[in-house]
């Protein structure tokens, strides 16, 4: 059984009001441990509602959620314990920084888990290194840092709890290209180093294409698809119809194919695109 599993998960907002809305509708999912998954879907497709179920912030209207084999809400006394297994980084997490120093802010989660000062200290320093925060920054106020640094502090605070599943909601929103690459790089590095499950919610197909191995597409409260990158981006027309896009290079090569250039590859990275053009040119010359 996967690390995250749902059975007919349904969530309804505003039951009994004119604004009643089924935000998640009969979702069945089985996400394997160690996977790095991108979650995409248009605004209001249910992605945020879905991920809030994974650590019990929302209770299903009907259906079940299992984390690491245990059903959430089945035994209330276990809820806190299960929640520690799923770390959730919200959009613009830097707005949630509150402590006097960067060190204390990262320490907040680990301390709440009941770790000793020594264990917490080890994790804080290790996580700070992983997210690229220099040791001298740890004693500064988080509010003195740049936007990108603040965000890395906020992410470190969740990573330091060493959750079995790390969920990040739009972690690159509002960052410049270098900041984006840096955050995506550290997420990849974290995944490679810890081998834990990572879920990345994003509107940026380019970000998703270069970071994850599998993609979960939400559409109108339902799962449209849960598959590997190539199979998902091969459905460019359907994705476009539901308000999503594929990466710009994917669009370029889909159009070239439609114009009669022959190749079998699904293209979603610039390097791959470049190699493909060079290969096609070589074949043409032959």
């Amino acid at each position: 059984m996967g690390i995250i599993r749902t059975e007919d998960l349904t969530y309804v907002y505003g039951e009994g009001t004119p604004f009643r809305k089924t935000a998640v509708d009969g979702v069945n999912l089985d996400i394997e441990a160690g996977e790095i998954v991108g979650i995409i879907g248009h605004t209001g497709s249910g992605k945020s509602t879905l991920i809030q179920h994974f650590n019990g912030l929302l209770k299903p209207t009907s259906g079940k959620v299992f984390i690491d084999g245990e059903e959430l809400f089945a035994d209330k006394s276990r809820l806190k314990e299960i929640r520690f297994k799923v770390g959730l980084v919200f959009q613009y997490p830097e707005y949630q920084l509150f402590e006097e120093t960067v060190y204390k802010d990262i320490a907040f989660g680990p301390k709440n888990m009941g770790l000793t000062d020594g264990e917490a200290d080890k994790r804080i320093k290790e996580t700070a290194r992983l997210v690229g925060l220099k040791p001298e920054l740890l004693d500064k106020s988080p509010f003195e840092l740049s936007g990108g640094q603040k965000r890395r502090v906020a992410i470190a605070g969740v990573m330091a709890m060493e959750p079995k599943v790390l969920i990040l909601d739009e972690p690159t929103a509002g960052l410049d290209p270098r900041g984006r690459d840096r955050i995506l790089g550290l997420i990849k590095e974290y995944h490679a180093e810890k081998g834990t499950t990572v879920l990345l919610v994003s509107h940026s197909m380019e970000d998703v294409a270069k970071t994850v191995s599998k993609i979960l597409v939400m559409n109108d409260a339902k799962v449209f698809m849960y598959s590997d990158r190539s199979s998902v981006f091969a459905k460019a027309d359907e994705l476009t119809a539901m308000g999503l896009t594929v990466p710009q290079v994917t669009r370029v090569f889909d159009r070239l194919r439609a114009m009669g250039i022959e190749f079998d590859d699904e293209v979603f990275s610039i390097d791959y695109a470049k190699d493909l053009v060079l290969r096609l040119l070589a074949e043409k010359r032959r």
Binding site: G41, T43, A173, G174, H203
Partner: peptide, 11 residues
């Protein structure tokens, strides 16, 4: 940065 939080259609 008006589109920083929008999905592709919104953008």
């Amino acid at each position: 940065e008006p589109t920083a939080m929008l999905d592709p259609i919104g953008r």
